[in-house]
Design a protein around this nucleic acid. Structure first.
Lengths: 203, 203
DNA sequence: TAAAAACTTATAAAACGAAAAAAGTTTTCA
DNA sequence: TGAAAACTTTTTTCGTTTTATAAGTTTTTA
């Protein structure tokens, strides 16, 4: 693999695991067994490296979402799988990563986050609309609001430690939310599919 | 009305409208046409006044919730009415109020907030349990998680300005959330009641 | 030639102090 | 007697300086 790509993948892992601030360019160089000069030959500055890390991660995510879509039988299955992966990924991210991004890379954050969030909302909206078209979701719901709310809900869930205090695992909380949410939007047909999926997962 | 009670009510209104920091003891005295000495005869210090304001507000809220419970035909009606009032009240609170509480009255905040939040969750939980007992809500849901999530959801909604950016009114967003949420927990019987309530509100 | 080390520079956090504002107290006066 | 004004004290804010750390650059060396 090309050295530049290797630097992106390695430093992304480090940023996600320890945060941005606490991973220095020296750390990255040492961890990869290269000199800082080599890194600076491929990236203008740390923020440039960080930006390329994030873009790389996004492209990975997009690929994964398309894979899931292809392998799912209906919108509900797609939603469950995507959400499960999203929450699993969220749990791996050190809170310092987002905190550092906001604090020390405010400009980059302001540039990337709104677009990223909007993409996520649009992704959810498209799935919901597909669900309505397939007779799985009710047609009397404001899908846009639903998409925004679900997005916010999952974000809040990972940020806060409400569930930790109550001895509830994030994954259980997440399952409950998604289940209530999809049932709340589902038609009779949708409810049947949900029950079928639940039974499958039990066994 | 007793002067002490009048001070509590007036200063609470001012705190909620403008925040805590920007309402000085001089402001309160001037607004009430009394001297600061009079205020300090009834309250040890500003934080004491603030604390009594909050407790007063809580007792009002409790009374209101009991009224709503009595006047409702079923749990769903109770939930809708309580939530509607809660959101209406939230909108009236200047964000500076909560910000000041956290920043300048951290100790008081740490003392009151967790208890307050827990009470709200328990209130929701009791309603959900009643709903299950009445055959309105499904019995296969983790009610505790549901209660926490709904609570958090409404809190997030008022804090963030997601909906403002999307030109969605807070009240519309709130209605969508509550509708999806209650439908997601409802049995067939519950769904029928929800539809009936919706029809009533249309006309 | 590229890693390692040594270096300079930029940034951020911490420490400090002055100034401002408001809490809390005392005095004045109607 | 209690409102209004004047006062002291405490707290917060704001600007400055110092210090430390890590970014970014250059030099050394294997």
């Amino acid at each position: 693999m090309e050295i530049k790509q290797r630097i992106i993948e390695e430093s992304f892992q480090m940023f996600v695991r320890f945060g941005i601030r606490s991973v220095t360019m020296d750390d990255i160089a040492k961890s990869m067994g290269v000199s800082k000069k080599t890194i600076y030959e491929h990236f203008e500055h740390k923020e440039d490296l960080l930006c390329q890390c994030i873009n790389y991660h996004k492209s990975l995510q997009d690929t994964r979402i398309n894979e899931i879509k292809k392998s799912s039988e209906n919108v509900l299955e797609t939603i469950y799988k995507i959400m499960y992966e999203a929450v699993s990924n969220m749990q791996k991210v050190n809170p310092a990563f987002l905190a550092d991004l906001r604090k020390y890379h405010y400009k980059l954050c302001e540039e990337l986050m709104p677009r990223h969030e909007q993409q996520q909302v649009e992704e959810a909206l498209a799935l919901f609309e597909q669900g309505v078209a397939d007779g799985i979701f009710r047609d009397d719901i404001d899908l846009k609001i639903a998409a925004i709310v679900l997005n916010k809900q999952l974000k809040t869930m990972s940020d806060e430690n409400v569930f930790v205090a109550e001895n509830i695992s994030v994954i259980d909380a997440f399952k409950t939310i998604i289940l209530i949410f999809t049932r709340g939007m589902a038609t009779t047909k949708g409810l049947e599919i949900i029950d079928r999926i639940l039974k499958q997962n039990e066994s």
